[in-house]
Design a protein around this nucleic acid. Structure first.
Lengths: 150, 150
DNA sequence: TTGAATGCAAAAGATTTGCACCGTC
DNA sequence: GACGGTGCAAATCTTTTGCATTCAA
């Protein structure tokens, strides 16, 4: 399993002027093993006491890098602050955020909304609101990436 | 329009020992008008120069209150910090977060995933990852609320 | 070798809290 | 009039940045 994980990351890093360092390897493995619940602080705490003490700043920088490379995704990629919405009624829109240029495209899907409701109902969960953030690359950045690395 | 908004909020606040104050009314209206893009800081900046100067702390406290009451929802309700996940392959799970007790229920929906992809494809958007956070009340808290406030 | 990456500590940004005063019920 | 809410400022928590040092390529 370290094998595949390493090849994943090294293949991506090797494509630029980026370097495959020990902290990056450690953080990547941790991320791959941790599922969706990894926070910068959590990773830092988990790794600092190992035999490879590493800095908090490195964890933040590395996670951000991974997100930019597209090998990791973060909750709420676009917003530095928390956002709120009135939950009473009102049609709601979801977001696609470009990891390359930061563009946010809004969209709505009644079908997705209905499926959410179905999932919630199945669990006796009463929905108040939801936030769907799709991260990826917009057409322009997809093209740019294709050109940059053939 | 102020009518309906006010009745929404006063009905909810009246249910406890909570009071309907000017800042709360203002924040609620702003929230209702702003769609999903309202941040605490944004609301503060928008309202501070009106004829009802209000404190930053009040905005934060009020938004938190609204979320607890279920009349507003926030992105990433559960997590104070940003969370990351490895995006390479790996089935991904979504979250339902209870505004009452903080419980997080994970779920996956292939159908929702497919719809996201369809929406993305339609826009030439290349998906890297996504984060779907449904907020609401779990069965236990729904029951508790029915009985009266938690 | 050499520029990229790291670690530390300081800075910046976001949110919470303590406390005296104010306003709704 | 009582008690919850507000505002301010200080405290806390999260994330970013400057800079000298270290290290992968």
């Amino acid at each position: 399993m370290p094998d595949r994980a390493d090849s994943d990351i090294s293949a991506l890093l090797a494509n630029g002027s980026l370097r495959l360092t020990r902290p990056r390897r450690l953080i990547w493995r941790h991320l791959a093993a941790a599922g969706a619940h990894a926070s910068a602080e959590g990773i830092y705490q988990a790794l600092r006491r190992g035999r490879a003490p590493l800095g908090r700043a490195t964890v933040f920088r590395t996670l951000k890098l991974f997100a930019r490379l597209g090998i990791a995704a973060s909750t709420d990629a676009a917003a530095p602050r928390r956002r709120f919405e009135a939950a009473a009624g009102k049609a709601h829109h979801d977001h696609m955020t470009c990891l390359g240029c930061g563009t946010v495209v809004e969209f709505t899907s009644l079908a997705i909304e209905r499926l959410q409701e179905a999932e919630a109902r199945r669990r006796g969960f009463q929905i108040v609101g939801h936030s769907l953030e799709v991260t990826g690359y917009c057409p322009r950045c997809v093209a740019a990436r294709g050109r940059r690395r053939p």
